[in-house]
């Protein structure tokens, strides 16, 4: 029922769009009404996704039980239906039960979470190092071993932002220079920032990490599939915080080699 209501709403929105508000509706290629995390393409993102689903199922079940008891009480124990109030005001058995059971559930949740964390923190034996420097407002990428370095900034034209032009498919998620990394290789990212704190985040490649001025953080990604993945700065960094996207091209190794060579010749 909710879905059908949303559909109605959507058609209403299409109608409004037709009536003059240009270019705010997503093009067909975009995921619409996306409900869940983006499809993971790295081991870390997959582990996060699975953990997220597991915990969501657990809390959903807990939620259903709580709501179930509540709505049952509301339906059953109403004065209008002649319900007489009982007199009890405690029950040691019940209280012990609802302290012990949640504790057990929490322990069950802590085990896979701890494992996932150990995996994420293991930055050893990486195949390459990519240094990411956040600045107001864009990213600088350094391929440390290759002496390749470039800046990457928002490529969406201002006219699309102000609405003078139809918004493109990757509105606000396109940059002038894509980062390129090889598929199947463990890439260690070193994160830092020039001015204020930023956070580098491409949802499909795994979690985010803060880029902090004066300090260096690390994380790692190993993408299984080639493709273009998009993300954004995730820590408020001033005026154009919403306008510093990240675009990562994951390519086959040979293609990556060719790209790196071309970059070296450029500089």
């Amino acid at each position: 029922m909710i879905v059908s209501r949303f559909k109605k709403l959507r058609s209403a929105m299409v109608a409004t769009a037709g009536a003059g508000m240009m270019g705010f509706l997503p093009t067909a290629a975009q995921a619409e009404w996306a409900l869940n995390l983006q499809r993971p393409v790295t081991e870390i993102a997959r582990v996060q996704y699975d953990l997220h689903m597991l915990i969501m199922y657990i809390v959903t079940v807990i939620g259903i039980i709580v709501f179930g008891v509540m709505f049952y009480s509301i339906a059953k124990f109403r004065k209008s239906k002649g319900a007489e109030a009982a007199k009890f005001d405690h029950s040691t058995k019940a209280e012990v039960l609802w302290t012990v059971i949640p504790t057990l559930i929490l322990i069950a949740m802590a085990v896979p979470s701890t494992k996932a964390l150990l995996l994420m923190e293991d930055t050893t034996e990486s195949d390459m190092v990519l240094k990411v420097t956040g600045y107001q407002w864009g990213w600088q990428y350094d391929y440390l071993e290759e002496d390749v370095s470039f800046f990457s900034k928002l490529a969406t034209p201002q006219s699309q932002i102000t609405g003078n032009e139809t918004k493109g498919e990757n509105y606000l998620l396109e940059v002038d220079n894509h980062v390129v990394i090889p598929a199947g290789k463990k890439v260690r990212l070193l994160l830092t920032a020039k001015d204020v704190i930023h956070a580098w985040w491409v949802p499909q490649l795994g979690g985010k990490k803060d880029a902090i001025p004066g300090y260096i953080n690390e994380m790692w990604i190993r993408a299984d599939e080639t493709g273009t993945y998009r993300g954004q700065c995730a820590e408020l960094c001033g005026k154009d915080h919403g306008y510093m996207p990240i675009v990562v091209d994951v390519v086959e190794e040979a293609e990556y080699m060719a790209w790196i060579e071309a970059q070296k010749n450029k500089s």
Binding site: T123, T124, E125, V129, L190, T192, P213, G214, Y215, I216
Partner: peptide, 13 residues
Amino acid sequence: AEVKTITLSYEVY
């Protein structure tokens, strides 16, 4: 023992 790589970074101000 598990540390295999150390990164030394400087920020010059």
